[in-house]
Design a protein around this nucleic acid. Structure first.
Lengths: 131, 131
DNA sequence: TTCTTCGTAGTAAAGTCTTCGTAGATCATG
DNA sequence: CATGATCTACGAAGACTTTACTACGAAGAA
């Protein structure tokens, strides 16, 4: 068995779904995660358990075994993983052009007026910070 | 064999690499694609061939068999697929928040001053178009 | 024509991803 | 204690992904 990688690999689809739950709920047991997942789609308890075990091996989650029901939590904060995923897609599909990615994102889901305003402000801060 | 899906599925990593070549080169033979791929990493000719065959089945590329060396081309324009990918990631990892995705993208790869200015302008057009 | 080169197709091996069933340990309760 | 509930670990099936070898036909050269 290889040691846990310091840089956990890109999460797969199912893994990302579980990470989403952990980010929203904070540290949680298998049962907690399972119940949350089940509200959106049918899934067996042991399936979630197995995923969490695999994710622990990969280093995507950390697990506290002090209790009988182990407590899992994402090993990286949401923002960190989101940055990885955005950067990965940027590299693989957008040839590194952040502009293209943003165009794609805005085209995929029309942003509201408020969201656009937020983005506008965000950009201005970036422009100030990058002289 | 199922018919070609009208909505081709999300391309995998290797598929996306090939699509990138086709987008850049336009319609191309297996040999063309193979040579381009080979400049960046070792790969067998028949591996590229097989990928293109699979991608044709999935509907990711179209193939013209009139010549002996078949001609392949992406079945969807780059922008369309990029929009799909951005939307998919937006949904799966960013809870639909375009802002978060953009923050992630900008954090992943610092944009140049020029790029930021372009984005700024782009946003203003969006804001005009979304009253 | 014969031999070599170039092309596609088919097969399959190895790896990963996802799902779930079963077994065994632990805990709570009558 | 006995029984049922709860939890983890293990194993494995099935699908998908990636890679590459082999076979065989078509085109071109000697």
């Amino acid at each position: 068995m290889p040691a846990k990688p310091p840089q956990p690999p890109r999460p797969t689809d199912a893994e990302l779904e579980i990470l989403t739950v952990l980010w929203a709920r904070g540290p949680a047991t298998v049962r907690d995660v399972h119940e949350t997942i089940c509200r959106r789609k049918p899934a067996q308890y042991t399936t979630v358990l197995k995923m969490l075990q695999i994710m622990a091996e990969k280093g995507l989650v950390r697990r506290d075994e002090k209790q009988r029901a182990h407590i899992y939590q994402a090993s990286r904060p949401r923002e960190w993983t989101q940055r990885q995923l955005a950067g990965d897609l940027l590299q693989r599909a957008f040839n590194g052009s952040a502009k293209s990615l943003i165009v794609g994102a805005l085209a995929a889901r029309k942003a509201s007026k408020e969201e656009l305003a937020e983005l506008h402000q965000l950009l201005e801060e970036y422009e100030k910070g990058t002289p």
